[in-house]
Design a protein around this nucleic acid. Sequence first.
DNA 1: GTGCGTGCAAAGACTTTGCACGTAC
DNA 2: GTACGTGCAAAGTCTTTGCACGCAC
Lengths: 164, 164
Amino acid sequence: MSAKASTAARIAEEAAAAPLCAVFRRHLRSVRLKYTPERAGVLDAIIERDGLFEVEELLNDLRDRRLRISKATVYRTLRLLQDAGIIMPAQIDARQSHYQLVYGRAPRDQMVCVRTGRVIEFTDPEIRTLRDRICRRAGWAPVTHRLQIFGVSPEDAGAEPPAS
Amino acid sequence: MSAKASTAARIAEEAAAAPLCAVFRRHLRSVRLKYTPERAGVLDAIIERDGLFEVEELLNDLRDRRLRISKATVYRTLRLLQDAGIIMPAQIDARQSHYQLVYGRAPRDQMVCVRTGRVIEFTDPEIRTLRDRICRRAGWAPVTHRLQIFGVSPEDAGAEPPAS
DNA sequence: GTGCGTGCAAAGACTTTGCACGTAC
DNA sequence: GTACGTGCAAAGTCTTTGCACGCAC
C-alpha cells in the first residue's frame, strides 16, 4: 500500500470515526443506559487503536492515559459496544481476545502467517461481492463477515514455526 | 442439499476419513510419539462428528462410548491433531472452543445467523479461487482459510436476538 | 530402565458476577 | 429515592501443567 493511499484511507477513517461516539450514545439511550466518562474512555481508546485490538492493550492504553477504569468496566463496555454494532470479536487466537472496530467500515480481512503468527489486515471488495452473492443464493441477508487467510508470508518463509 | 447429493458427499467423506488415522500415525511417528488407544479414540470421535465440533461434545461422545479418556488427554490430543494438520480451531464463539476437521477436505465456510446463532456449513469453490488470487498478489503461499458470514437466515428472520 | 502417556488435581488465563458504595435526576 | 454505574474481589469457565504411576521396548 502506497503512502498516499494509506493517508487517504486514514483520513476517510477519521471522518468515519467522528460519529462513533454518537452512534454509541444513541445505542445507549435506546436501551436506557448512560454515556459515562468510562464508556467514552474505552471507546476513545479503541478508536485510537484503529482496528484490531486486544483487551490487554486497551487496559494498558487506558492506564497510560491515567484513566483508572477497572477491568470489569472495560469488559462490560466491550459488550455494550458489541451490542451497538461498533465492534466485534475478531478471534484471531483462542487464548487472547481480539476485537475489531466494524461500524462504518468495510470488514477487515486478515492474512495470518502460520509460521510467525503475524497478522496483516486488508480489505478486498471482491470478498464482499462474493459474500453477498453467496447470501443471495441462500436467501440470507448479509450483515458482515470475517475472513482469515492462513499462509506463509514471503518475509517469514524461512522462519521457524512459533513455539506453540 | 438433496438426499442424493448428501449421500454422495458422505461416501466421499468416508473414503477420505479412512486414511485419517494413517495421517495421524505418520505425524506421530515423525515426532517420535505413539499412536495410543486414547489418541485413536479421540480421532474416531472427531470423525464421527464430521466437521465442526466442540470439546464438550467430544467428551460426551467419549463418555457415551464408555471410553474413559481424561479431559487432559483430549486437550493434549487436540493439540497433536492440530500439529498434524488434521483439525483446526474454528472459533465460532469466544466462549466455547469449536474445532473443525480440515485434513483432506476443502475448508468449510460458515454462515452464522446473528439472530439465533445457528451455524450452517458450506463450501464454495469461488472462495478458494479468490483466496488464492489474493495470496498470489501479496506474495503469500496460501495454506487454508476460514470464512464466516454473519447474516440473517430466512427461517430466522423473525426470531428474537439470542439472550446474550 | 528409559521414555513416553495417562489421570488426577492443581494452577493458569481470561471473563463475568455479586456486592457495597456513588452519583444523577 | 430510584435507577444506573463503578471498583473490587470472588467466582466461573475453559485449558494447561505438574506429578506420580504405568506400560512398552
